[in-house]
Structure formats: structure tokens, C-alpha cells
Write a protein that binds this DNA or RNA. Structure first.
Lengths: 154, 154
DNA sequence: AGTTTAGTTCTCAAAATTAGGAACCAACAG
DNA sequence: CTGTTGGTTCCTAATTTTGAGAACTAAACT
């Protein structure tokens, strides 16, 4: 049975709250926190349930949500019926791209907005287009930025 | 009295929902949408209230929230007691930096997490540190990226 | 002083989110 | 075919969020 230190528990709560602020439900946020912090990075349904003191339904729903959000995975071992859930941490590059994608989508909406707007407010329209364009630029440049980062670290 | 087209209303709803997904409350999200779309980019309290069909309390609370989030401003004209609310759109660069800041803050938590973690999971710890480091890198590089963007646009 | 206007605050009800518990299902074990 | 385990689903209650309405404040106008 898994036991957490005070510090670990505090970290889980902090991470949980951070995730909540990005729109995630509380239990899901804490599961993410737990998987960040836990010495074993692969936990079973019941380990998660037990250590966080939450119900089966909450656990099930949150795990499914996290899988939908592309944050979670599970692996199995033959002769063991349980799933071992883990963060898709090794794929964090995809995660970051995913976040930027949604922003870029918004950029398209901004362009639609400008297309609808009066032409009487040229500076305002320019600001909107600039923002939209920068977001797209950011989206395009992100892969390069990742490569640069790879290169510059020792 | 301000009148919106169907298309404008639809855009406001779309923008509103997008904002909601980033954790903003519904009315605040729609106000942002309205100010993006409205031909007049500076609206009074009552214009906002009326065109969105919301109560004074909801309007007041949302406007204050948006000012706290650094998204809104207002200007006044002498001899007119009303405030003219507007998006701080011309400052979108700051906005973008602000968003990245909060991510960077999370990066510090990740480093704390790794400091607490067992050393028995070196790859996992490496992934965590990589992510944390990349987020900081992104934070540092963003200003440069903005400059590049300024330079490359015609 | 009395009234109108711009906006705030308080109280409360409606609606949405969250999560517990129990019943359920499917796979495997004996 | 019966029992156990891992996980899902359904129903419901508690909590939180949201926003309306009315009372209120403060400034400006008369």
C-alpha cells in the first residue's frame, strides 16, 4: 500500500489546483498530481483510488477523461488483469503542440471577426489581425523552437 | 441602441465558449466576445448590459473580473459620467507573455517535484526536467520570437 | 435638499459540477 | 457454474457557480 509524505501530498494539491485552473475537474487534477509525484509512475485503478481516498466512480470517470485529453495511457502485464495507468509524459512535446493548436484555432476565429468588422476602426482591426497572425506564427515556429532547445542543451 | 447581426451574435457565442474553456465565467466570456465584434470597440456599462441581455450585477462583476485579469480598461470623457469599457487589445503582447508566465510558474513546481522524487526512475525524472526546462526556454525565447515576427512581416 | 444616473453589493434561487454508493458487467479462477 | 476482481454505469445528494433582483452608494444635476 502506497504511502505519501506530507511534501508529496502538498505537491499533489498544488498540481491539482493548477490543473483545475486550466479547466480540469478536481479529481482528475489530483490524479495527474499523484502520477507526477509517485515513486511508482504506473499505478493501478485501486492504488489511485485508495491513496487519494476517492470513490470508484470518480476514479473511473477521471481516468477516462484524462485518456480522452491524451494525458494518460495504461499498460498491462499478462497474467495480471489490472491496468497500470501512467502519464504520457514522454510525449510532452505533443502535449505542448496540442495546447498551441487550440490557440491557433482561436486565431482563425479572430480572422473571421475582422472579416465581419466595420472598416471604420483600422487600428483595432490591425491589432486583431496582428494577434491572429502572431498566434499562427507561434504555431509554425514551435517545432523549430523545440529543435533549437534540443540543440542548445548540453 | 446597438444592434447585432446573426453572424456577430454567433461569433460572440463562439468566442464566449472559447473563453469559458480557459476557465472564464460565461458572462465575462461573452463580454470579451462582444468587444471583439462590436463596431464600436468602446461600450458603456449599459450598452453591454442591454445588448447581452444580462443583469447589472452580472455586468458589474464580470467587468471587474476582466479588469483584474488585465483584459479590460475603461476611458472616460469629461462631461460624461459613464465609463467606456474596451479590451486592452493593443497590449496583446503583454497578454501572451502573461499566459506563458503561468506556465513557467508550473515549471518551477515540476522542478520541486523532481527534487522530491526517487532517483530510481531516471527516465521519468529526465522527462519531467526536460519539460520544465523547455517551458523556461520558451519563456525566455518568446520576446525574441515576437521580435522575429515583427521583422518578418511586411 | 431632492432627483437622476452609473455602478456596486447583498441575498437568494436556479443550474451545473462533482463525487459517493450501489448495482452492474465482463473476464478469469477454481 | 460459482465466486472474485477490475472497472463501469446509474442514480442521487452535496457543493459550487452563476446570475437575477432589489437595495444601496456616490457623484452630478437641478
Amino acid at each position: 500500500m502506497i504511502k505519501l509524505t506530507e511534501k508529496q501530498q502538498a505537491l499533489i494539491e498544488r498540481i491539482g489546483i493548477f490543473q483545475e485552473k486550466t479547466g480540469m475537474q478536481p479529481v482528475a487534477g489530483r490524479i495527474v498530481g499523484l502520477l507526477y509525484v509517485s515513486d511508482k509512475p504506473e499505478l493501478t485503478f485501486d492504488e489511485i483510488r485508495e491513496v487519494l481516498g476517492i470513490s470508484k466512480s470518480a476514479t473511473s470517470n477521471a481516468l477516462n477523461l484524462l485518456q480522452h485529453l491524451n494525458r494518460l495511457d495504461y499498460i498491462t502485464y499478462s497474467g495480471d488483469r489490472r491496468r497500470y495507468f501512467r502519464l504520457k509524459l514522454d510525449r510532452w512535446r505533443e502535449l505542448v503542440m496540442q495546447e498551441i493548436d487550440s490557440v491557433t484555432e482561436f486565431s482563425a476565429t479572430l480572422q473571421e471577426v475582422v472579416a465581419e468588422r466595420t472598416k471604420e476602426t483600422p487600428e483595432y482591426n490591425r491589432d486583431l489581425l496582428d494577434l491572429a497572425d502572431f498566434l499562427k506564427y507561434l504555431h509554425r515556429e514551435l517545432p523549430k523552437l523545440m529543435q533549437q532547445w534540443e540543440a542548445q542543451r548540453k
